[in-house]
């Protein structure tokens, strides 16, 4: 294992982490501020990817594709907030899970109805394709570096929004005490719609950015959704900072674990068995990480005290 390979794998872990953060940030805002478990968050990711693929095919421009992804996902977010989610804020979590699970099925079959069952094509823009050579002779895909950059910019923007603006103050206040902030004259229902749209747009952005290097297909959101839930549980529900740290932890653990566990095991086992056992163990690592964090801090790293 050379140093170059190690650095490359750390970059891979970071890139995976920041994309996970885009998903987790929206999820943690919605879960933390509104107390809503939104299983359909993965569908918004899929909506973003499909909108981007459609716009890229129609216009040939990746920038327009990103705009399309952001607006389509935000629009879909506003629609489902007004039509469905709004009725669920006071409902028990089980009702929320059932209703948002139904939304997953509707989004999936609706997307299949419109776009068909075969995966769509969405590619990296020419300006960002191919590898670049980093200091030390590391070859790394430029697009993945760009993803890391976009993720960090969004993280900084979200931090500024929640900590330095009036809207952010209302969001944080709404998380702590929604009756009080409503009594103080803030239109809580408009605030919720806005937060939901913001979370949806971030998921859509992640879907479009990741869709360019993956497969744009029905059901692509659900595996990411599970990881995003793990992330916000590790980071502490409702905390943007927690989602960021949690996402990087999950990204690095998952990537480095998948590489190093088989290598470590191959010291004691036959290569084939080490590869199989290592892969099986690596897929459990993030859940082991989550368990360990929860034992140490039951409300997550930045979760604060559990509300009464």
């Amino acid at each position: 294992m050379s140093a170059i390979l190690l650095i490359e794998q750390v970059l891979n872990g970071l890139q995976f982490g920041v994309m996970l953060f885009l998903m987790a940030a929206g999820l943690t805002l919605i879960f933390g501020v509104m107390g809503l478990i939104n299983l359909a968050h993965g569908s918004l990711y899929m909506v973003g990817a499909f909108a981007a693929a459609f716009a890229a095919a129609a216009t040939g421009s990746f920038a327009l594709a990103l705009v399309a992804a952001l607006s389509a996902a935000a629009l879909a977010g506003v629609l489902i907030e007004v039509a469905v989610i709004r009725r669920l804020y006071d409902a028990p979590h089980l009702d929320q899970v059932l209703a948002t699970f139904a939304l997953i099925l509707m989004f999936s079959e609706g997307t299949r109805w419109v776009f068909g069952s075969f995966p769509l094509y969405l590619d990296i823009p020419d300006a960002l394709s191919g590898p670049v050579t980093l200091p030390g002779g590391i070859q790394y895909p430029l697009y993945r570096l760009a993803l890391i950059g976009v993720g960090l910019v969004v993280a900084a923007g979200l931090w500024w929004l929640t900590q330095r603006t009036r809207l952010g103050m209302q969001i944080r206040a709404g998380k702590d005490d929604r009756e009080m902030i409503a009594a103080l004259g803030v239109d809580i229902s408009k605030l919720y719609t806005l937060v939901f749209a913001l979370g949806a747009a971030l998921a859509g952005l992640a879907g479009a950015l990741v869709g360019a290097i993956q497969s744009v297909q029905v059901g692509m959101g659900e595996p990411v959704l599970i990881l995003a839930f793990v992330t916000i549980v590790i980071g502490g529900i409702g905390s943007i900072k927690g989602a960021f740290i949690g996402a990087l932890l999950v990204g690095l653990t998952d990537t480095l674990g998948g590489i190093f566990l088989p290598l470590v095991l191959s010291v004691a086992m036959a290569p084939e068995a080490a590869a199989q056992t290592g892969a099986a163990l690596a897929s459990m690592l993030i859940y082991i990480l989550m368990g360990a964090v929860l034992v140490w801090k039951p409300t997550g790293l930045f979760g604060g005290a559990r509300p009464a």
Partner: peptide, 19 residues
């Protein structure tokens, strides 16, 4: 010989190992 996760969507780590 590398086993990936079923449904895995990112192969950056495996591609780095191939390189």
């Amino acid at each position: 010989e590398t086993f990936t996760q079923l449904g895995q969507t990112d192969y950056a780590a495996e591609i780095a190992a191939i390189r």
